[in-house]
Design a protein around this nucleic acid. Structure first.
Length: 262
DNA sequence: TCGCCTGTTCGGCT
DNA sequence: CAGCCGAACAGGCG
């Protein structure tokens, strides 16, 4: 489910349920999720407090003592809390058992999700060449993101190396709201349009966070609910939603509301 | 049975 | 180096 808003919603829930709680034990239900982890990775986390959480883009980090447990949710990863350790939600790959009888289940049908351990979130982000989190991005980041870019706005937004956190639905939602054609080259925007567009993307993300959004449960006025080919446009019913592929992803837009420039 | 899918990485091309 | 594409990862769902 997870683009920036969903991951931020998860981060807040984890803080609500588990901040400053002791991690009693860990159950690995599907070994694939811990692939690449050191053999005794659990010992770095178990019996320690959850001290703080961080999120950069779609990447979530939980700090226990000296190490951060990094959760990446892939396409279908999510967090489901239970209060009974015998109640294991479907597709649970990993469970963190806290001492307040809260069980944090990492569920993931498609198993593209991964965990990892890092000693520094910042070095992780540098190594990954991860850009600044969308919600922290400034006007100068917006200009850096779009200037001199021949590639489409959609493809630019999906790259995580200048501004991170935007995924497929958030990109389409923001492009629709900004009335920009997804194939518009970045360099076709004026600097003030670049700044305004970043602000639109941030607003969409803020609204989604405030609405506790998870994939498949968007606020009813969101364009994302209309991301179906040939469905009437929610703003102009005489137009039909079109589908194209950009940046390797299915992209939906309204050809009347979102004109290609020129 | 087939094609589609919220993310990311990689190789190969132009 | 920039850009683009397809494939791969895996499995549920219509």
């Amino acid at each position: 489910m997870p683009e920036l808003p969903e991951v931020e919603v998860m981060r807040r829930k984890i803080e609500t349920h588990s901040l400053n709680k002791v991690l009693q034990s860990i159950t690995v239900h599907d070994g694939r999720i811990e692939k690449g982890m050191p053999a005794h990775w659990q010992s770095f986390f178990v019996k320690n407090n959850l001290i703080e959480t961080r999120r950069i883009g779609k990447y979530l980090f939980l700090r226990f003592h000296d190490y951060w447990l990094h959760l990446h949710f892939g396409m279908t990863g999510s967090v489901v809390f239970t209060t009974n350790r015998d109640e294991i939600p479907q597709y649970t790959r990993l469970t963190l058992h806290f001492d307040n009888d809260i069980h944090l289940n990492f569920t993931d049908p498609r198993t593209f999700g991964k965990i990892d351990m890092v000693s520094s979130v910042d070095s992780f982000a540098n190594g990954k060449k991860l850009g600044k989190d969308l919600m922290e991005a400034t006007e100068s980041d917006a200009i850096k993101l779009f200037s001199n870019k021949k590639i489409s706005l959609k493809a630019i937004l999906l790259k995580q190396n200048i501004i991170s956190g935007v995924g497929n639905w958030l990109a389409d939602e923001a492009l629709f709201r900004a009335k920009l054609h997804p194939a518009t080259p970045g360099m076709a925007l004026t600097e003030s349009q670049m700044v305004a567009f970043l602000s639109t993307i941030q607003s969409v993300a803020e609204e989604a966070i405030a609405a506790d959004t998870h994939y498949g449960n968007f606020p009813s006025h969101f364009f994302t609910n209309y991301r179906v080919e040939d469905k009437p446009c929610p703003s102009d019913e005489s137009a039909k939603i079109q589908k194209m592929t950009l940046g390797g992803r299915a992209t939906y837009f309204c050809p009347k509301c979102q004109k290609f420039p020129g």
